[in-house]
Design a protein around this nucleic acid. Sequence first.
DNA 1: ATGGCAATGTTTCATTGA
Length: 259
Amino acid sequence: MRIATWNVNSLKIRLPHVLDWLERNPVEVLALQETKLTDDKFPVAPLEAAGYRASFAGQKTYNGVALLSRLALPASDVAIDMPGFADEQKRVIAATVNTVRVVCVYVPNGQAVDSDKYRYKLDWFVALHDWLAVERKIHPRLVVAGDYNVAPEDRDVHDPAAWEGQVLFSGPERAALKALQDLGLHDAFRLFDQPPKSYSWWDYRMLAFRRNAGLRIDHVLVSDALKPLCTACVIDRDERKREQPSDHAPVVATFDLVD
DNA sequence: ATGGCAATGTTTCATTGA
């Protein structure tokens, strides 16, 4: 079983990319962020034609998340938002697919340290932590995949000295991500040997991709019970080379589970 | 010093992203 996450930066623009990618990478579950579509505009039909059911929670212009899963697999208990955290912004969707509870998250960007948006990001992380502390008890097989907008360590940043203390790499953000990991949610990417300078996002500007000036901010966290079943985790950086790409690359985790 | 690139809205630029 493969579970992937991808911030597509507008599913309207990126639908051809997603369909093409799924054809080449027929994962069992794909978590999408930044769909930027209201629910009435979600492309249900083309995704079904490609063999995927879709659950989604969208809004106009910003945010928006979705979970795609193969039509042949059982999928149930779709949940939107975090209970107890009132939020207009559509950033969380969860579903149980093939006995695995999959949570798709789009963590706030934070804009700049000391901004209102940064405080909202840290508050959001606290809510996520407290919610997942409960969810992991209910669902031992738990995957939390998405755009976390935080690079965990120096090796996840192309220029850690320049980024130190900046949004996406500040101490409080990294501590918030670490607190999730301390719940027993493990960074699947770091369970394996990886190429040096592996990143999942590159700025559209400054020829960042060509210089590999990126950050690793998209993560798949796996619960204690799933950790021994996780057999691989890769970033598909080739997708970033395509025509009119998202600024994020897909991240794919593989599990030794029968589909 | 501080823009650069991309997407959205109802647009002739502002806002947001990361």
